[in-house]
Design a protein around this nucleic acid. Structure first.
Lengths: 242, 242
DNA sequence: TAGCCTCTATGACCACGGTCATACAAAAGC
DNA sequence: GCTTTTGTATGACCGTGGTCATAGAGGCTA
């Protein structure tokens, strides 16, 4: 199953990039608003880019967290994996989105995996550089806390969903969330949707067939198109975040 | 159902306390290690104590977060409540444990409620004072991040549990976690256990009967005693935190 | 002592969804 | 070209656990 190609701490292929390109990346990255250009430049100088092929791991569970990761292009799924192999995706990160906001502060191994879903470039900053930079720019703390706040709420909301919502409702919520983030054309397989909704491929396919019959979605291999977004309006107050 | 007695932002009864007593509270509070005595004194000077009766709300969902809360005595459950009334307890906080680490940074309303399970005293610090204090003592950031890291892992672990573990396993994990934190005598009702394990009272009672027959626990009204802790060793690597 | 509420206990019912099975189409590899 | 892998599709089965029901025991107040 594992498709990572190299040793533990040097994943992906090094990638040449200009300081300007990296600065532009951090400029409008999630959580980095309100930082002076001069400081952004410092950040860009500390960063290196690496390229990952589809299916390659950006980081794996139980490994110490030595780097802060920020997606520069492509798409990465961050998921948690149980002992029995069950996977739960809880973040689809594209350009400008960090993969691990918490990890660099403690450095401890976590239970998360990150895997490239397409050819993807990721910026790396050593955890020490990152933590020192955050300490020098306290506004980052508020930004990070705001993001963590949403992440924790989303996780708690998911717990409630798992126990009291039926699969169809969970899938609809996932689709609605994906619609907000990626638009009406969602290029994911049923297996990937299942990992987002916390169910199996079979049940996802069955439910998708029902939604298709209702005229809510259309689907072909590797792609779902939402036809009638209005019909899946989310009655839940609790936020879901992907 | 709601038993809160007063207006939104002035819950509980004001309580006289000495600066020394409050300093002692913060001294060994979770997340406040490594702070100089002089700073702790400042913190204690900003805090006020309030007393809550059993069943009283410390804060409720959808209210802006104006205060940082730290339990001084008693026991508080922090839970999330869905639209349909389903509750999921995810923190039992006793002396030295904060109720809301994230909220004060954003001030935004969250989806959490906190309710006193016994007569309880809680220290309050205005969110602005708290945020300024954290900015002045950056070590607090690392401490808070370490706590959040565990909280997020625990939430993610719970999501996995909900979807792939049976109720009996979830209950055993909850009991094991409570054993670690409170000892073998757990003074909770089946309804409270159910909210911790994400199930119903009936199923909890049925499962408890099974565990009793197996000689793993004994129980009487409002109390469970773990007889054979060894038999509920936790095979899961993922942490559960309460 | 009566009355009420909370907590515990257990039976009956059944639906949701996980598991296993088979099948086929589309893409990918050789 | 052929084979293999991946993704989609659907049927059959059935176990877990939620829901609703009833009942009794312990604790509290008047």
């Amino acid at each position: 199953m594992r498709t990572s190609s190299s040793t533990a701490d040097t994943k992906g292929e090094p990638l040449e990039s200009t300081l300007e390109a990296r600065a532009e990346l951090f400029q409008d990255a999630m959580g980095f608003s309100g930082i002076a250009d001069r400081e952004i430049k410092k950040l860009a100088a500390m960063a290196t880019l690496r390229r990952f092929a589809k299916g390659q791991m950006v980081f794996e569970q139980d490994q110490p967290c030595d780097y802060f990761h920020l997606v520069a292009s492509g798409l990465v799924k961050v998921y948690i994996c149980s002992a029995s192999g069950f996977r739960m995706t809880y973040l689809l990160a594209r350009r400008g989105e960090p993969l691990n906001l918490v990890g660099p502060f403690t450095g401890d191994p976590r239970f998360l995996c990150a895997e490239a879903m397409q050819a993807t470039d990721v910026a790396h900053i050593s955890r020490h550089d990152f933590v020192r930079f955050v300490a020098d720019n306290p506004i980052l703390f508020s930004n990070i806390m705001a993001i963590l706040s949403k992440a924790v709420d989303s996780a708690n909301s998911r717990i409630i969903d798992m126990v009291e919502k039926r699969v169809e409702e969970r899938l609809l919520r996932v689709l609605l969330t994906l619609l907000d983030k990626f638009g009406a054309e969602i290029r994911l397989t049923s297996a990937e949707l299942a990992e987002l909704a916390g169910t199996t491929v079979e049940t996802t396919l069955r439910t998708m067939a029902r939604l298709r019959n209702l005229g809510i979605i259309e689907s072909e291999r590797g792609q779902i198109t939402i036809i009638r977004p209005a019909s899946l309006k989310n009655p839940e107050r609790l936020p879901l975040w992907v």
